[in-house]
Lab assay of single mutants.
Amino acid sequence: LAALHAEGPLAGLPVTRSDARVLIFNEWEERKKSEPWLRLDMSDKAIFRRYPHLR
């Protein structure tokens, strides 16, 4: 499970980098069924690119 911001401008976004990794992994797991070539990237760089508020 990932903790998400409940309200405000960040509502629905992950609270920590660990939470972001959970979301990225879950999405990758779903997408790899139809796109088996996808690589999993959970590096800090990938997290910041996707969720800049975690910098």
Rank of each mutant, 00 (worst) to 15 (best):
L1V: 13
L1I: 15
L1H: 12
L1G: 08
L1W: 13
A2D: 08
A2P: 12
A3I: 12
A3W: 15
A3C: 13
A3Q: 14
L4F: 07
L4M: 07
L4Q: 05
L4V: 14
L4K: 06
L4R: 02
H5C: 08
H5D: 04
H5W: 11
H5I: 11
A6H: 09
A6L: 14
A6I: 11
A6Y: 09
A6Q: 12
A6M: 14
E7V: 15
E7M: 11
E7R: 07
E7N: 11
E7H: 13
E7Y: 11
E7S: 14
E7K: 10
G8E: 14
G8V: 06
G8F: 05
G8Y: 06
G8T: 07
G8C: 07
G8H: 05
G8I: 05
P9T: 09
P9N: 10
P9Q: 08
L10Y: 12
L10P: 04
L10S: 07
L10G: 02
L10A: 05
L10I: 04
L10M: 11
L10E: 04
L10N: 15
L10Q: 03
A11D: 07
A11H: 09
A11S: 11
A11T: 12
A11E: 10
A11G: 07
G12P: 04
G12F: 06
G12K: 07
G12H: 04
G12I: 04
G12S: 14
G12Y: 06
L13K: 09
L13F: 09
L13W: 04
L13I: 04
P14F: 03
P14N: 00
P14T: 00
P14A: 01
V15K: 11
V15S: 03
V15W: 03
V15T: 05
V15D: 03
V15L: 07
V15F: 06
V15Q: 09
V15H: 03
T16A: 05
T16G: 07
T16I: 01
T16Q: 07
T16W: 03
T16E: 04
R17W: 12
R17A: 12
R17M: 15
R17K: 15
R17F: 13
R17H: 09
S18D: 12
S18F: 12
S18V: 09
S18I: 15
D19F: 05
D19E: 08
D19V: 04
A20S: 01
A20E: 02
A20T: 01
A20D: 01
R21G: 07
R21F: 06
R21I: 07
R21E: 13
R21N: 05
V22F: 13
V22E: 08
V22L: 14
V22N: 09
L23T: 07
L23Y: 04
L23H: 05
L23Q: 05
L23A: 06
L23R: 03
L23G: 01
I24D: 01
I24N: 00
I24V: 07
F25E: 06
F25W: 10
F25V: 06
F25M: 10
F25I: 06
F25G: 02
F25C: 11
F25A: 08
F25T: 03
N26F: 14
N26W: 10
N26Y: 13
N26I: 13
N26G: 10
N26V: 10
N26Q: 13
E27Y: 06
E27L: 03
E27N: 04
E27P: 00
E27I: 05
E27W: 11
W28L: 04
W28A: 01
W28P: 00
W28R: 01
W28T: 01
E29N: 15
E29C: 11
E29T: 12
E29P: 02
E30N: 15
E30L: 12
E30T: 11
E30V: 13
E30I: 10
E30M: 12
E30A: 13
E30D: 11
E30K: 13
R31H: 05
R31S: 06
R31A: 09
R31Q: 10
R31I: 04
K32F: 10
K32T: 07
K32L: 11
K32W: 08
K32S: 14
K32I: 14
K33V: 13
K33D: 08
K33R: 10
K33Y: 10
K33E: 09
K33S: 10
K33L: 13
K33W: 11
K33A: 09
K33M: 11
K33C: 08
S34F: 15
S34H: 12
S34K: 14
E35Q: 10
E35W: 08
E35D: 09
E35P: 04
E35A: 08
E35K: 10
E35V: 03
P36Y: 06
P36M: 03
P36K: 08
P36V: 05
W37L: 09
W37S: 13
W37P: 03
W37D: 10
W37C: 12
L38S: 11
L38D: 04
L38I: 10
L38H: 08
L38N: 07
R39H: 14
R39K: 12
R39E: 15
R39A: 13
R39N: 09
R39M: 12
L40Q: 01
L40N: 02
L40T: 02
L40F: 04
L40E: 01
L40K: 02
D41T: 05
D41V: 05
D41P: 01
D41I: 07
D41N: 09
D41C: 07
M42N: 07
M42S: 04
M42A: 07
M42F: 09
M42Q: 07
S43N: 03
S43W: 01
S43D: 05
S43G: 08
S43Y: 01
S43C: 05
S43A: 05
D44M: 15
D44V: 08
D44W: 07
D44K: 08
K45Y: 12
K45L: 13
K45W: 09
K45E: 14
A46M: 08
A46Q: 06
A46I: 05
A46V: 10
A46K: 06
I47N: 00
I47H: 00
I47G: 00
I47T: 02
I47K: 00
F48W: 09
F48C: 08
F48P: 00
F48Q: 06
F48Y: 15
R49E: 15
R49M: 13
R49H: 13
R49F: 09
R50P: 01
R50A: 11
R50I: 08
R50W: 03
R50L: 09
R50K: 11
Y51K: 00
Y51R: 00
Y51C: 01
P52M: 02
P52Q: 04
P52G: 04
P52R: 03
P52N: 02
P52K: 04
P52E: 02
H53L: 01
H53D: 02
H53Q: 01
H53M: 01
H53R: 05
H53Y: 09
H53V: 01
H53A: 01
L54P: 00
L54C: 00
L54R: 00
L54D: 00
L54S: 00
R55E: 09
R55K: 14
R55F: 14
R55W: 10
R55D: 10
